[in-house]
């Protein structure tokens, strides 16, 4: 997904159409790319070559003009939090022309060590379990961690310390600053029966309600979805590896096996994917900002 920012409005584009010239992105002040759910290390029927499909995604990104300012990787970098998996991801990302990558962890990146290795590799500048904020060309970005401190029967969790930090982090910002918040598990209740939501996201969002434009970027569910709530627009991204079923459309979530031909379409490489993304995301063109 390519994101451009123009006049306070974020707009998304399916990259295949951008590269093939069928669509010309509005030239904005900023464009960046979100990638997600690359789980390096998995080799199942759903995708036996996750390195290959990630490389295709990177090649697509490298074909963009103008090049994106940076990448956001919204988690599940690895399959089993193994050093070799993170190494491979780093190696593939080296071939990306955009050198600046901002990460948040997925649940697959914090297995067995509560995210210690993830933090050492990707969160040196971050606070707590890996959350942080940064300013870029007049926008404020916030990366949140909702894959640690799980409670039995619960969903994703931000927890008290991170919520306090968020409240403090945005306090100094004027309400006219566009906000982009990214985290792995959706910060809205996509489908709690499958764990697709975050228990205490409402409190986090309450700190953001006063802002005129808030865009929340999530992943985890490996399909695009969008929701608008006041000034807050929620999006979820596709995976670079495999799709998951639509909520409730199968017995459970999990990697979904599709034909090799179809796989590319659900990873954002064919036209079909773009059409879906475009119609779903078209609403962000006109937010009711204050």
């Amino acid at each position: 997904m390519l994101w451009t920012f123009c006049g306070g409005v974020l707009k998304s584009y399916g990259m295949d159409k951008v590269i093939s010239g069928q669509v010309t992105p509005v030239k904005g002040e900023l464009s960046f790319v979100q990638i997600s759910d690359s789980p390096i290390g998995i080799s199942k029927e759903a995708n036996k070559d996750v390195v290959g499909t990630l490389q295709i995604a990177i090649d697509r990104i490298n074909g963009l003009a103008p090049p994106p300012a940076f990448l956001l990787h919204t988690g599940d970098l690895s399959h089993l939090s193994k050093a070799a998996e993170f190494d491979t991801l780093d190696q593939v990302l080296k071939s990306c022309r955009a050198k600046d990558v901002h990460y948040v962890p997925g649940e697959h990146d914090v297995l067995n060590d509560n995210g210690k290795q993830y933090l050492e590799r990707y969160g040196k500048q971050a606070r707590g379990d890996g959350w942080y904020g940064f300013d870029y060309k007049g926008l404020h970005f916030v990366g949140l961690v909702n894959v640690l401190n799980p409670k039995a029967g619960g969903l994703g969790a931000l927890d008290h310390e991170q919520l306090e930090w968020l409240e403090d982090d945005v306090k100094r910002l004027g309400s006219d600053i566009p906000m982009v918040v990214f985290a792995h598990i959706p910060l809205w209740a996509v489908y709690p029966d499958w764990g697709w939501g975050t228990d205490d996201s409402a409190q986090a969002l309450s700190y953001l309600k006063r802002f005129g434009s808030v865009t929340v970027l999530n992943s985890h569910i490996d399909q695009t979805m969008q929701k608008v709530e006041g000034n807050i627009t929620f999006h979820t991204a596709m995976s670079t590896a495999f799709p998951q079923p639509a909520p409730g459309a199968a017995a459970s979530p999990g990697p979904m096996k599709v034909s090799a031909e179809k796989l590319r379409s659900v990873l954002g490489i064919t036209d079909v994917n773009y059409v879906q993304g475009r119609s779903a995301l078209a609403i962000v063109d006109s937010p009711l900002g204050s």
């Binding site: 649940e107 697959h108 297995l111 799980p150 409670k151 039995a152 029967g153 619960g154 969903l155 709690p192 029966d193 499958w194 764990g195």
Partner: peptide, 10 residues
């Protein structure tokens, strides 16, 4: 007990 990776699993 539960699955700490997918805490909705009990």
């Amino acid at each position: 007990y539960f699955c700490s990776v997918h805490p909705h699993m009990k």
